[in-house]
Amino acid sequence: MKKIGMIGIGMMGHGIASNLLKHGQNLSVLEHAGNQPLDALVAAGAGTFKTPKALASHCDVIILCVTGTPQVEAVLLGDDGVLQGMRPGTIVIDCSTAVPTSTEKVSQLVMAQGGFFLDSPMTRTPKEAAEGRLNLLVGGDAKLFEECKPILSCFAENIVHAGPVGAGHRMKLLHNYVSLGTVTLLAEAAACAQLSGVNAQTFVDVLAMGGGWGAALERLKPFLANGDPSGLRFSMANALKDLSYYNEMAKDTHADRTVAEAIQRTLATACQDGNPQALLPEIIPMIAQRQSH
């Protein structure tokens, strides 16, 4: 059995780690101030290490689940980073959301040191992470993908091989642009409905019976019905980060980004005017307040 090391035990990472342990995997995690509490993981058998270098020197597989590109580069390339302790043959699996050009760069550095690399970003929410039912979009060598599938299956329900290294992150950004963009569009419409005196339940019901139905509406429904934002446990700061990564990718590929830039501006204004760590449904009253002035 391969020794697995994990870096990034946040809301998503904690669910991934707990499911690896449930499936009997040999898991160690990085101690970090930003982690969710590690007590339950340690009690279930997880080991801990204080630096990425020390973790990498102990493990055959390293799974990253950090915030974004700067954090991926820091834990891999830093002074006490993974590459400082990694042994030849180590597999790095990056489940973070990252800029594809950076993914290609760090993968080359990993492989130059005798390692292997998959980008394996995820969709769905912390709820599905805890249930072991994530979707994974994987970029990398097809043979390596098949070799790693038993590990990925410990915490994912749907696993798609998107293509070579970088393809997973490209598909993730496309997915999140559509997903978060639709939520932002609905939030703006809901704010307009509120200012226009349209009943929130009527707004939801009419959209649900027509072309407005979909996952985005379902996730906003609890907030529109009773102010509960937990239907979409995704912060405005993370949404802004993902849209900025998408726009960077679109710019690099000379793709049109007129709508994407407008969505990014909406999210940037919300983060500037309010709490960036607020959950995305909470953008609705912020948009309404701004429109009413």
Rank of each mutant, 00 (worst) to 15 (best):
V183R: 12
D80A: 14
A260F: 08
N199C: 11
A208S: 10
H293N: 15
A74E: 15
P88A: 00
Q71H: 12
L118E: 04
M249K: 01
I4V: 15
I9H: 01
K3C: 03
V259I: 14
L152I: 08
A255C: 07
K149P: 12
G231I: 06
S96L: 06
K251M: 14
A112Q: 14
A190R: 09
E248K: 00
P164E: 10
Q36V: 13
T67W: 14
T48D: 02
A200N: 01
P229W: 02
T69M: 00
L136V: 12
D228M: 05
V29Y: 01
K251I: 07
G231T: 08
R124L: 03
T182N: 14
A288Y: 09
A43N: 14
I91C: 13
Q272E: 08
L109M: 13
M171P: 07
V29D: 02
V198G: 02
K105S: 13
K241N: 05
L20S: 07
R290V: 15
I16D: 00
L173T: 00
A191N: 09
A250D: 03
I9W: 08
M1I: 09
R124Q: 02
N176W: 01
C95D: 13
V198R: 04
I91P: 04
A129M: 15
A54D: 10
H32I: 07
V72Q: 10
P52F: 05
M286H: 08
T90Q: 10
D94S: 11
T258V: 06
H175A: 13
M236A: 15
H58M: 10
L152C: 11
D205W: 09
A190I: 10
A268G: 07
A187C: 13
G85Y: 00
Q71L: 02
